[in-house]
Amino acid sequence: MKQYVVEKPGIRKSVEEELKRKKVCAPVKQENSANFSAIHSFEEIVWGPPQTVIPPKKYFLPTSENILSFRKRDGGFEVEALNAAEEIVLFGVHPCDLNAIYLTDRIFAEKNQDENYLAKREKAVLIGVDCLTPCSPEAVCLRMDGLNPGDRFDLFLTDIGDVYFVEAASRKGEEFLRGEGRPASEIDHRKLSSVRKQRDELFDQEEKKLLPDYNDLPGLMKRNYVHAVWEEHGEKCYGCGSCNMVCPTCYCFDVEDYMRVDLENGFRKRFWDGCMLEDFAKVASGENFREERFDRLRHRTNRKLNYLFDKWGQSFCTGCGRCIKACLTHIVSPLEIANEIFQRQSV
């Protein structure tokens, strides 16, 4: 990984150059919140808080996407695979989302490669921005190992005063810089360490504590598969799937065929689905493997803190805090569920 120091106007210039050529998407203000959207000028970018309502996963796994078109032909069907991908620059992605994109990259590239996701991902440049203050009162990124993105980006900017400390993890990232900046010196590195140390101290003060040991989260979940917490929280759950929709690592989708009125042409659509929704685990016979809301809450929490943690070696909650905010009955926070179980565990 290469490290540079770039003057602030240099970054502005890079963004403005990209804007001439490509679609650039970044967090922009939306009422009292923010959301990722295509920008037309550098000024629109929201650098720090507030957190975006939904994560940038929508650029790789659109909320709804046509994946096939078909039409009747000679007693059969003529089918065409659809895979629309455009070149974009995703600017201002927070570390929690960079970590989440890294994880969904793994998921969609495993075994059956998901061509639609991967094509979009390939054409995207990820420019991350270090969070120096928590972006919402709900954020728990420091606790869930989501605050440090490692090298999970093309370019990563940290504001170290008058300049940005810039880490470039790929050629795409280097190209974005267009030769702006100079290699980082020993002094710049020391500045970066001190900024990050202050950042960690601030986050440690501000963010809700995780009581169990991070690495024991899968074990804690396994030992407490049966626990009163699930029923208690499940009782207050709407089963509205808001937590799934806003989660940067939730990647489930449903697929449905739609015929046009002429009954000749149609298309296959895939769209976001969520394990908290009642029909998610319902099969053709009518059997539902997770009929109760508490079943589904337990499943979702285990996906984040246990099943996928075990499989990929880290929590699938990156602590972005979006689900905690979105949940109107305040029951879904993986961190708070883990804390509650830890304090009350029977085993």
Binding site: G239, C240, G241, S242, M245, L277, D279, A326
Partner: peptide, 9 residues
Amino acid sequence: YPVCVHCKM
């Protein structure tokens, strides 16, 4: 499912 799903989308 409830309206929230699409509202979030």
